[in-house]
Design a protein around this nucleic acid. Structure first.
Lengths: 226, 226, 226, 226
DNA sequence: TATGAATGAGCATTCATTCAT
DNA sequence: CATGAATGAATGCTCATTCAT
């Protein structure tokens, strides 16, 4: 990583300020509700600068979406060898901490709200976020199946089940009601219950696993999660 | 219900045309993207009439949302005594047929997209739709528990699980990608799998229930569902 | 011609004010140099009203040009039986009084200046103005030929010659130099000279005709011409 | 003319590129329709360079016009001793080939279109082009008069007549309708006819001259004319 | 000297809203 | 009661011009 010429550094900094401001305003007001003036004001640049950097409102919107999509890549990380139940537990909390963050929810609302006008963006986001996550989860679950810890026929469905059991309910609520994010206790309830059902359906040793889950649930969230 | 004077009938008809047109345009273009001109044109009335009937764009939006919320009430119907598994099966297909209808999805996208600007609306919709449905489902599940057909501790969680297992995945995809609605075969896969997991976790007689589910799955969707 | 409803009368009056103002501003500033604000201000209406009446700048421009084109129709009038030379004399002065009027010149400059961007308009104006005039003149000249007063082979060329001899020089100067319109005396010189050459070339009795022309020239312009 | 230092050569080359590009764009889009960006892009220089070289849009426009005016000087060349009729014939074709060239017409449209906003330019162009040409022609005609080949009182009028008879019609058409330039055959008709009228009016030996003209007309355009 | 980057002011156009009829 | 007509205030975007480098 070599030093950039000052021009370039300045340009990049301004580009960053514009992108950040635009994301904020778009997420807040929607595409049509957002004015280029508002973005320029928040970024502290003039309107022509906006246009010099991004060409048009639609292109600026596209640039943000592309960036957010890229940012989302690699969200799934292989867990760290704690054993099945702690891994699922950690994963659930980690993912909840990502997916229920206010900015993440705002972005999701924006994308959903504009999906009719910008279908490619909704599709691209789907491919870069949820589908990637799903693929990672499938790999993980198949590895556990190979070890004899889980049993299922259709790995994709198993991965979907995990997500649907653990996070769909709080996320749906949060999407509709931005001001009432689930509390830590709420999440504990959703996650514990979701994993319980998952393990009942898929574990090769449900009794042990459920006991371990119960213990984790009583300790509270995994460390390092919001 | 007595006959209305013609003036009133006329007024009601016009009100209806306005509401229908407005819903269509709002769902299509979002709140900010919708112009009162577009609504007036589609409804075939003049703009001042719009304002006479509904006061302002925001109030018109509110009126539509209130109406849609009311329309949604009672979406849950007690099933008809076919027994647990066919009832869950029928319910899943019926609900999928509601929730994945394009107009319903458009409305949901609209509400989610505007949830930041109109938080009461998102909240109200949540209370009138999903929560009501959830309550109905809880009652149903508790009745089955009382009959000894199901076993669980937390009825709310069980109801959430059913929804999360059966419909959250296709609905989420459809929200992001309006042009790729799930096919009948896709739905069959999601519903069959979701109910299988649900029964594994909650049925008091899983072996019998899963066999019955398998039979239904091979027959295809319940009759009368889209 | 029946009385119009007041709405319509009002509308027509406003339309007229807009067209007049727009013609003035366009002729003054050219198409690109004209702002809708300037037109609206001069017409005393708001900008949206402009758009309600004429849709867009380009359409407003087109409307003006169409109207001016129609106005120009019938500019050629059969002279009134004074005999060949007085008729040509009267016609020349009448036509000079039309074609060298400042507004007419401004319009011509506008059309010529925008001919590259609006080729149909230049063409349409050509067809409605000069070509129509030419056709009228051809008819007139052919009638005089039939009477034995003139002699020529190509009536179109004869008509072009008349125009080219009498008015092309002052008009060309005026097009380039709006502030120096030819004086009455200048015109007298151009017209007298042009008709003299025309008669030398085409008259069957040049001696008599030239004498008559000389007399007219000494009396000054035909009555009723500017 | 000594070698210039490279800096200066570079500067001159750049100046030239700017002037050429600007002329093209101005002629195409008119003064108001032309953006400094467009000129800079076509010239391959940056906008500040434009301003450094020419100060402002208006000054750049003035510089182009001054240059074009100078370019036009000396357009009239003494003919080469072929005798009256061939000389007039050659002159007419040569002048038609200049005045009806597309770039020349574009420039004329530009000047006429902007004559109201830039009156000095129209006036200057008039003085440098047409009037100079006219003066040359007057000298030529007076020389022929001195030789007894022509007869007239007012040399200026005779010169105007020649122009008005031969070229005003095709030029006027071309000014209004840029896409329909007159064909070679059209020009032959205009020129032959115009010279015929001129000779009838001014020649001291019309019979001989008209016969010679007829022969030239049947041979077609003078050599070396477009 | 030449330029990438920046901007205040202006452009055509559209919006939610309100009179006058 | 309903509407044609009107408008102040934006909106997305572009322009001639000028810094900072």
């Amino acid at each position: 990583m070599t030093a950039l010429p000052p021009r370039t550094r300045n340009r990049l900094a301004k580009e960053r300020r514009i992108l950040d401001s635009a994301l904020k305003v778009f997420a807040d007001q929607g595409y049509s509700g957002t004015s280029m003036d508002a973005i320029a004001a928040l970024a502290g640049v003039s309107k022509p600068t906006l246009y010099q950097y991004f060409g048009s409102k639609e292109q600026l919107f596209g640039a943000i979406m592309a960036e957010q999509r890229d940012t989302m890549l690699g969200a799934f990380e292989e867990p760290d060898g704690l054993g099945l139940v702690p891994e699922l537990w950690a994963f659930s909390w980690h993912y909840a901490g990502t997916v229920l963050r206010p900015e993440f929810l705002s972005l999701a609302r924006l994308i959903i709200g504009e999906a009719q006008r910008f279908p490619e963006i909704g599709r691209a986001y789907q491919a870069a976020g949820p589908e990637r996550m799903l693929a990672g989860m499938m790999d993980y679950l198949m590895a556990r199946k190979a070890e004899g810890r889980l049993t299922f026929d259709d790995a994709e469905m198993a991965a979907e089940d995990l997500w649907g059991l653990v996070l769909s309910a709080p996320r749906n609520r949060a999407l509709h009601d931005p001001e009432n994010l689930p509390s830590r206790a709420d999440l504990n309830r959703f996650i514990t219950n979701g994993l319980r059902v998952f393990l009942k359906a898929y574990s090769t040793d449900p009794a042990t696993d459920l006991a371990q889950l119960q213990a984790l649930s009583e300790q509270g969230p995994a460390q390092g999660t919001p």
